[in-house]
Protein backbone atom coordinates (compact mmCIF):
# COMPACT_ATOMS: atom_id res chain seq x y z
CA UNK A 1 0.00 0.00 0.00
CA UNK A 2 1.26 3.42 -0.83
CA UNK A 3 0.69 6.86 0.53
CA UNK A 4 -0.77 7.81 -2.77
CA UNK A 5 -3.61 10.24 -3.05
CA UNK A 6 -6.08 8.26 -5.14
CA UNK A 7 -9.56 9.26 -6.21
CA UNK A 8 -11.99 6.85 -7.82
CA UNK A 9 -14.87 8.25 -9.81
CA UNK A 10 -18.08 6.31 -9.35
CA UNK A 11 -21.45 6.39 -11.03
CA UNK A 12 -24.83 4.78 -10.62
CA UNK A 13 -25.05 1.61 -12.67
CA UNK A 14 -27.91 -0.50 -13.96
CA UNK A 15 -28.23 -4.26 -13.73
CA UNK A 16 -28.08 -5.80 -17.22
CA UNK A 17 -31.16 -7.98 -16.89
CA UNK A 18 -33.38 -6.07 -14.49
CA UNK A 19 -32.21 -2.54 -15.23
CA UNK A 20 -32.35 -1.84 -11.50
CA UNK A 21 -29.88 0.70 -10.10
CA UNK A 22 -26.74 -0.84 -8.63
CA UNK A 23 -23.05 -0.08 -8.25
CA UNK A 24 -21.60 -0.04 -11.75
CA UNK A 25 -19.50 -3.10 -12.50
CA UNK A 26 -16.43 -1.31 -13.85
CA UNK A 27 -16.59 1.51 -11.34
CA UNK A 28 -16.69 -1.05 -8.56
CA UNK A 29 -13.57 -2.62 -10.03
CA UNK A 30 -11.93 0.79 -10.05
CA UNK A 31 -12.83 1.13 -6.36
CA UNK A 32 -11.38 -2.31 -5.72
CA UNK A 33 -8.14 -1.35 -7.42
CA UNK A 34 -8.02 1.86 -5.41
CA UNK A 35 -8.70 0.01 -2.16
CA UNK A 36 -5.84 -2.37 -2.86
CA UNK A 37 -3.52 0.59 -3.47
CA UNK A 38 -4.59 3.06 -0.83
CA UNK A 39 -6.78 1.09 1.58
CA UNK A 40 -9.22 3.17 3.54
CA UNK A 41 -7.53 6.36 2.39
CA UNK A 42 -9.08 5.96 -1.02
CA UNK A 43 -11.39 8.84 -1.89
CA UNK A 44 -14.60 8.39 -3.83
CA UNK A 45 -16.10 11.07 -6.03
CA UNK A 46 -19.48 11.21 -7.70
CA UNK A 47 -21.22 14.01 -9.56
CA UNK A 48 -24.97 13.77 -9.20
CA UNK A 49 -27.61 13.29 -6.54
CA UNK A 50 -26.24 12.92 -2.98
CA UNK A 51 -29.51 11.29 -1.90
CA UNK A 52 -29.04 8.41 -4.30
CA UNK A 53 -28.96 5.39 -1.97
CA UNK A 54 -27.36 3.18 -4.58
CA UNK A 55 -24.09 5.04 -4.09
CA UNK A 56 -23.89 3.46 -0.66
CA UNK A 57 -23.03 0.17 -2.33
CA UNK A 58 -19.55 1.62 -2.95
CA UNK A 59 -19.24 2.67 0.70
CA UNK A 60 -20.18 -0.87 1.64
CA UNK A 61 -16.86 -1.98 0.22
CA UNK A 62 -15.31 -0.52 3.35
CA UNK A 63 -15.13 3.26 2.98
CA UNK A 64 -16.38 5.86 5.39
CA UNK A 65 -17.41 8.61 3.04
CA UNK A 66 -17.85 9.78 -0.50
CA UNK A 67 -17.71 13.29 -1.92
CA UNK A 68 -20.71 14.09 -4.06
CA UNK A 69 -20.75 17.13 -6.31
CA UNK A 70 -24.43 17.90 -6.27
CA UNK A 71 -25.93 18.16 -9.71
CA UNK A 72 -29.37 17.74 -11.22
CA UNK A 73 -29.77 14.99 -13.81
CA UNK A 74 -28.72 16.13 -17.25
CA UNK A 75 -26.04 18.53 -16.02
CA UNK A 76 -22.56 18.21 -17.48
CA UNK A 77 -20.36 16.31 -15.04
CA UNK A 78 -17.12 16.97 -16.87
CA UNK A 79 -16.31 20.59 -15.88
CA UNK A 80 -17.16 20.09 -12.19
CA UNK A 81 -15.14 16.91 -12.00
CA UNK A 82 -12.18 18.51 -13.73
CA UNK A 83 -12.40 21.47 -11.44
CA UNK A 84 -12.53 19.30 -8.34
CA UNK A 85 -9.67 17.07 -9.41
CA UNK A 86 -7.46 20.00 -10.30
CA UNK A 87 -7.65 21.22 -6.70
CA UNK A 88 -7.83 17.89 -4.90
CA UNK A 89 -4.17 17.08 -5.32
CA UNK A 90 -4.95 13.66 -6.70
CA UNK A 91 -2.05 11.65 -8.05
CA UNK A 92 -4.11 8.88 -9.56
CA UNK A 93 -7.70 9.06 -10.74
CA UNK A 94 -9.46 5.77 -11.45
CA UNK A 95 -12.65 5.43 -13.45
CA UNK A 96 -14.65 2.76 -15.17
CA UNK A 97 -14.41 2.67 -18.95
CA UNK A 98 -18.03 3.36 -19.63
CA UNK A 99 -21.04 4.27 -17.52
CA UNK A 100 -24.01 1.91 -17.37
CA UNK A 101 -26.56 4.72 -17.26
CA UNK A 102 -26.86 8.15 -18.83
CA UNK A 103 -24.95 8.76 -22.01
CA UNK A 104 -22.50 5.98 -21.37
CA UNK A 105 -20.33 7.27 -24.19
CA UNK A 106 -17.11 6.17 -22.51
CA UNK A 107 -15.67 9.59 -23.32
CA UNK A 108 -15.34 10.91 -19.79
CA UNK A 109 -11.84 9.62 -19.00
CA UNK A 110 -10.53 10.98 -22.30
CA UNK A 111 -12.14 14.39 -21.92
CA UNK A 112 -11.00 14.64 -18.31
CA UNK A 113 -7.45 13.78 -19.26
CA UNK A 114 -7.57 16.33 -22.00
CA UNK A 115 -8.89 19.06 -19.72
CA UNK A 116 -6.42 18.31 -16.96
CA UNK A 117 -3.56 17.73 -19.33
CA UNK A 118 -2.77 14.39 -17.66
CA UNK A 119 -1.84 11.11 -19.29
CA UNK A 120 -4.57 8.50 -19.59
CA UNK A 121 -4.10 4.76 -19.32
CA UNK A 122 -7.04 2.76 -20.61
CA UNK A 123 -7.67 -0.75 -19.43
CA UNK A 124 -5.53 -0.55 -16.30
CA UNK A 125 -5.11 -4.05 -14.88
CA UNK A 126 -2.58 -3.61 -12.13
CA UNK A 127 -0.34 -0.98 -10.59
CA UNK A 128 3.01 -2.70 -10.04
CA UNK A 129 4.93 0.02 -8.29
CA UNK A 130 5.14 3.72 -7.81
CA UNK A 131 8.41 5.50 -7.21
CA UNK A 132 9.85 8.91 -7.81
CA UNK A 133 6.70 10.33 -9.27
CA UNK A 134 6.42 7.53 -11.78
CA UNK A 135 4.10 4.55 -11.85
CA UNK A 136 4.79 1.22 -13.43
CA UNK A 137 1.50 -0.31 -14.46
CA UNK A 138 0.13 -3.18 -16.47
CA UNK A 139 -2.34 -2.34 -19.18
CA UNK A 140 -4.79 -4.99 -20.29
CA UNK A 141 -4.84 -5.89 -23.95
CA UNK A 142 -7.22 -8.33 -25.62
CA UNK A 143 -6.76 -12.05 -25.03
CA UNK A 144 -5.10 -11.73 -21.70
CA UNK A 145 -2.08 -9.89 -22.95
CA UNK A 146 -0.54 -7.26 -20.72
CA UNK A 147 1.57 -4.27 -21.65
CA UNK A 148 3.90 -2.77 -19.07
CA UNK A 149 3.81 1.01 -19.04
CA UNK A 150 5.64 3.70 -17.14
CA UNK A 151 3.50 6.75 -16.50
CA UNK A 152 4.32 9.95 -14.70
CA UNK A 153 2.02 11.07 -11.92
CA UNK A 154 -0.60 12.39 -11.84
CA UNK A 155 -2.54 10.39 -14.36
CA UNK A 156 -5.97 9.04 -15.08
CA UNK A 157 -6.62 5.38 -15.60
CA UNK A 158 -9.80 3.69 -16.75
CA UNK A 159 -10.45 0.08 -15.85
CA UNK A 160 -12.45 -2.55 -17.64
CA UNK A 161 -13.22 -6.15 -16.82
CA UNK A 162 -9.54 -7.04 -16.78
CA UNK A 163 -9.20 -5.30 -13.42
CA UNK A 164 -9.69 -7.39 -10.26
CA UNK A 165 -13.30 -8.21 -9.42
CA UNK A 166 -14.89 -5.93 -6.86
CA UNK A 167 -15.22 -7.13 -3.30
CA UNK A 168 -18.64 -7.69 -1.74
CA UNK A 169 -20.50 -4.65 -0.55
CA UNK A 170 -21.57 -5.03 3.06
CA UNK A 171 -24.76 -3.59 4.51
CA UNK A 172 -23.27 -2.22 7.75
CA UNK A 173 -20.54 0.05 6.36
CA UNK A 174 -22.85 1.04 3.50
CA UNK A 175 -25.44 2.23 5.95
CA UNK A 176 -22.98 4.03 8.20
CA UNK A 177 -21.02 5.73 5.41
CA UNK A 178 -21.50 9.41 4.70
CA UNK A 179 -22.39 10.98 1.37
CA UNK A 180 -20.78 14.40 1.67
CA UNK A 181 -22.57 16.72 -0.71
CA UNK A 182 -20.89 19.87 -1.90
CA UNK A 183 -22.44 22.57 -4.00
CA UNK A 184 -20.92 23.27 -7.34
CA UNK A 185 -21.74 25.53 -10.24
CA UNK A 186 -24.21 23.73 -12.44
CA UNK A 187 -23.16 23.53 -16.04
CA UNK A 188 -25.86 22.51 -18.49
CA UNK A 189 -24.93 19.85 -20.93
CA UNK A 190 -25.88 21.65 -24.11
CA UNK A 191 -25.16 18.66 -26.31
CA UNK A 192 -27.40 16.40 -24.26
CA UNK A 193 -30.11 19.06 -24.23
CA UNK A 194 -30.26 19.29 -28.02
CA UNK A 195 -29.33 15.83 -29.02
CA UNK A 196 -31.82 13.06 -29.46
CA UNK A 197 -31.30 9.73 -27.78
CA UNK A 198 -32.33 6.57 -29.51
CA UNK A 199 -32.11 3.01 -28.41
CA UNK A 200 -29.05 1.19 -29.64
CA UNK A 201 -29.66 -1.50 -32.18
CA UNK A 202 -27.87 -4.71 -31.56
CA UNK A 203 -25.04 -4.94 -34.04
CA UNK A 204 -25.43 -7.82 -36.46
CA UNK A 205 -22.98 -10.58 -35.72
CA UNK A 206 -20.97 -12.24 -38.42
CA UNK A 207 -21.82 -15.88 -38.70
CA UNK A 208 -18.97 -18.08 -37.76
CA UNK A 209 -18.46 -20.76 -40.37
CA UNK A 210 -16.28 -23.50 -39.06
CA UNK A 211 -14.42 -25.20 -41.85
CA UNK A 212 -12.11 -27.13 -39.61
CA UNK A 213 -12.09 -30.85 -40.14
CA UNK A 214 -9.97 -31.96 -37.23
CA UNK A 215 -10.00 -31.20 -33.56
CA UNK A 216 -6.64 -29.51 -33.82
CA UNK A 217 -7.95 -27.16 -36.48
CA UNK A 218 -11.02 -26.34 -34.45
CA UNK A 219 -8.81 -25.60 -31.47
CA UNK A 220 -6.69 -23.35 -33.63
CA UNK A 221 -9.73 -21.56 -34.99
CA UNK A 222 -11.11 -21.03 -31.51
CA UNK A 223 -7.91 -19.70 -30.03
CA UNK A 224 -6.34 -17.87 -32.98
CA UNK A 225 -5.99 -14.15 -32.74
CA UNK A 226 -8.32 -12.16 -34.90
CA UNK A 227 -5.91 -11.17 -37.55
CA UNK A 228 -6.30 -7.91 -39.28
CA UNK A 229 -4.33 -9.16 -42.20
CA UNK A 230 -2.86 -5.97 -43.58
CA UNK A 231 -0.96 -3.26 -41.78
CA UNK A 232 2.69 -2.59 -41.56
CA UNK A 233 5.22 -1.87 -38.87
CA UNK A 234 7.20 1.32 -39.35
CA UNK A 235 10.49 1.44 -37.58
CA UNK A 236 13.18 4.11 -37.48
CA UNK A 237 11.38 6.40 -39.90
CA UNK A 238 11.38 10.18 -39.69
CA UNK A 239 8.47 11.98 -38.09
CA UNK A 240 7.49 13.30 -41.47
CA UNK A 241 7.40 9.85 -43.05
CA UNK A 242 5.49 8.43 -40.12
CA UNK A 243 2.88 11.19 -40.21
CA UNK A 244 2.45 10.70 -43.94
CA UNK A 245 1.91 6.97 -43.50
CA UNK A 246 -0.70 7.56 -40.82
CA UNK A 247 -2.40 10.24 -42.93
CA UNK A 248 -2.52 7.89 -45.90
CA UNK A 249 -4.10 5.13 -43.80
CA UNK A 250 -6.73 7.47 -42.36
CA UNK A 251 -7.70 8.58 -45.85
CA UNK A 252 -7.83 4.99 -47.04
CA UNK A 253 -10.05 3.96 -44.14
CA UNK A 254 -12.34 6.88 -44.78
CA UNK A 255 -11.69 8.51 -41.41
CA UNK A 256 -10.43 11.65 -43.13
CA UNK A 257 -12.04 12.86 -46.30
Amino acid sequence: MTDLNIITLVSVGAHPTSGRARRAEQDARAVELGLRLAGERLQLLHAGDPREETLRAYLGMGLGEMAVLEQPPGADALPVLADYLRHAGAQLVLTGSQAETGEGSGMLPFLLAEQLGWPLVVGLAEVEKIEKGQAQVLQALPRGQRRRLKVRLPFIASVDNAAPAARQSAFGPARRGQLQASEVAIVDDSLLAEAQLQAARPRPKRLKVIKAKTGAERMKAATAKASGGGGQVLKDVSAQAGAEAIFKLLVEEGVLR
Binding site: G60, M61, G62, R167, Q168, S169, A170, F171, G172, P173
Partner: peptide
Protein backbone atom coordinates in the same frame (compact mmCIF):
# COMPACT_ATOMS: atom_id res chain seq x y z
CA UNK B 1 -19.52 -11.75 8.34
CA UNK B 2 -21.95 -10.79 5.60
CA UNK B 3 -23.43 -7.55 6.87
CA UNK B 4 -20.30 -6.03 8.38
CA UNK B 5 -17.37 -7.70 6.67
CA UNK B 6 -18.79 -8.43 3.23
CA UNK B 7 -17.16 -11.82 3.47
CA UNK B 8 -19.70 -14.31 2.16
CA UNK B 9 -17.46 -16.90 0.51
CA UNK B 10 -17.41 -18.22 -3.04
CA UNK B 11 -20.60 -17.51 -4.96
CA UNK B 12 -22.24 -15.93 -1.92
CA UNK B 13 -21.61 -12.33 -2.89
Amino acid sequence: LTLEKGATPNKGA
